[in-house]
């Protein structure tokens, strides 16, 4: 192989985020303007947040089995995912640390769409570590 690239995934495609939610059996709640987090039940707001920012979003993700929700907020060209990782809220157990599993699902769905659009054949392989490999190829070489 001739080069290796590591990429920090950014959410820019709402349609793909919806597909990622479906993949993980989460519910994408379009247009939901508030999401459930610690502050919404107690009224307390952490010092590093403003009164306007916490709990406010453009859409939300409902996570079955968790009491808290994920907020989705548009910021310039990117969608930010907002959530409270307190264990009692149940999100981290399902979404992974720093919502890594949700980002993984988004990345897989986005890459599959873009690759198929370019004419690649896509083979998906789940590894024991939880990582997912996509092999992109064309029948006659790329």
């Amino acid at each position: 192989m001739s080069h290796i690239t590591e990429i920090k995934i950014k959410v820019t495609d709402l349609g793909v985020l919806k597909a990622a939610c479906k993949r993980m059996n989460l519910v994408f709640s379009e247009g939901q303007k508030n999401y459930v987090w610690y502050g919404s039940s107690t009224g307390r707001i952490p010092e590093d947040m403003t009164l306007e920012s916490p709990g406010v979003c453009d859409h939300a993700i409902i996570v079955p089995g968790a009491t808290y929700e994920v907020g989705v907020r548009k910021h310039e060209k990117e969608y930010q995912l907002l959530w409270d990782h307190w264990q009692g809220g149940g999100l981290e157990k399902i979404l992974g640390e720093n919502a890594g599993l949700l980002m993984q699902a988004y990345g897989i769905e986005k890459a599959k769409r873009e690759a198929r659009r370019k004419g690649y054949l896509v083979q998906e392989i789940k590894q024991d570590s939880g990582a997912v490999v996509l092999n992109l190829s064309t029948a006659g070489g790329v």
Partner: peptide, 14 residues
């Protein structure tokens, strides 16, 4: 071929 590996932390290696 292009091999994409998505780890559980949401990072991608190509």
């Amino acid at each position: 071929a292009i091999r994409l590996t998505f780890d559980v932390n949401g990072e991608l290696m190509i």
